[in-house]
Design a protein around this nucleic acid. Structure first.
Length: 346
DNA sequence: AAATCGGGGCC
DNA sequence: GGCCCAGATTT
């Protein structure tokens, strides 16, 4: 009843179209409601139904997705739509096992879509309901650890009412988003205040406990060293992009007057690579092209230092000592160790 | 169990 | 600048 009174009039709540609910749920993964709303409008206006989406051009879908991030979500959306169309469906069917097997449908999204569209009696657990349940039941420790995940999913299932499970699931999230907020929860207006362990004990600020992230050493600049046998290449980290075998370059010619397509080709040539590497070129924004380079059999190390150009072919003089203190991920560390002293120069 | 994928909002 | 957000997939 709290939900019926206080629920926000969100665009995907206008009806119970499983297609629209699906799009909204995927967009909402790791993305806040306010951010999603304009994207949702544009998307469902361009592709009004599952069948329209199934026939869509991937490049166009990705363009509509620009700014949301996690572009795999958009690709999986298209894949799933195609699979459903090929199987003869014109919308998301009310079939848990079938839907769960589609790309992009994990436990949360499957249950969220089917409960909202069809009142399927399936529990959900996400950021808002996690916070709410942790406080309500006084669950200590990091909610992300496996044991607590199991407890929380179990609770979500236990609490699920016989009917109207869709509204119930959404009310958990809505209450978490509007009242049981991460900081400064509005406990005075919470319908659960008399049954909430955290509220009764005044421990709202301590629950849920957030895991302490690893200490990070600050970097002014970062570079990458790639070796293939006796060939070594030093590449400056691009201004955007993350730790991975991934670089992004702006469109158009670089400072040396060569196109970045050519620069990428030169990079591969410097490394003496033919078949071992594939490049995948995607246009994300109009200003950025992404090159995914699969570095099979190559060694990569990451290191500190300031560089002033994008590509430095054949630089073997970089000191790996500069690697110190940066908390490399496990695969990065393995690569760095495998590289060993190969980069020690004069 | 851990790593990866991102961009925007907020304190 | 660090943390958070309607997670899924891969290893």
């Amino acid at each position: 009843m709290w939900f019926e009174l206080r629920a926000r009039p969100l665009p995907w709540r206008e009806n119970r179209d499983a297609y629209r609910i699906w799009i909204s749920e995927v967009m909402l993964q790791q993305t806040q409601v306010a951010t999603v709303i304009p994207y949702f409008h544009r998307f469902v206006e361009r592709y009004r139904s599952l069948l329209e989406l199934a026939d869509a051009d991937e490049h166009e879908v990705l363009q509509l997705w620009e700014g949301l991030g996690y572009y795999r979500r958009a690709r999986d959306l298209l894949k799933a739509a195609g699979q459903l169309r090929d199987a003869g469906f014109d919308t998301i069917p009310n079939d848990e096992d079938l839907v769960r097997a589609l790309p992009g449908f994990g436990r949360y999204t499957t249950n969220a879509v089917l409960s909202q569209a069809y009142d399927a009696r399936l529990p959900i657990l996400e950021a808002n309901s996690t916070r709410l349940l942790c406080r309500l039941f006084g669950i200590d420790g990091d909610p992300k650890i496996t044991a607590n995940q199991r407890r929380l999913w179990h609770l979500a299932e236990l609490l699920l009412p016989r009917n109207k499970s869709g509204a119930f699931n959404q009310s958990l999230m809505e209450l978490g988003a509007l009242v049981c907020k991460p900081t400064a929860p509005a406990c005075s207006e919470c319908p659960l205040k008399r049954r909430c362990v955290a509220c009764l004990q005044g421990r709202q600020a301590e629950i849920p406990q957030h895991s302490k992230s690893a200490a990070m050493t600050k970097l002014s600049e970062v570079a990458v060293v790639i070796t293939n046998g006796d060939r070594v290449l030093l590449v400056q980290r691009p201004p955007i992009g993350r730790w991975a075998n991934l670089w992004e370059f702006p469109h158009g010619p670089n400072s040396d007057g060569e196109t970045h397509e050519l620069a990428a080709a030169r990079l591969l040539e410097v490394l003496g690579i033919r078949g071992a590497v594939e490049t995948e070129i995607t246009t994300l924004r109009h200003s950025v092209t992404r090159y995914r380079i699969t570095l099979t059999g190559l060694h990569i190390a990451y290191l500190n230092g300031t560089l002033d150009s994008t590509l430095y072919p054949n630089h073997a003089w970089v000191q790996l000592a500069e690697l110190t203190n940066y908390p490399l991920s496990a695969p990065q560390r393995r690569l760095a160790e495998a590289l060993g002293g190969a980069c020690h120069g004069p």
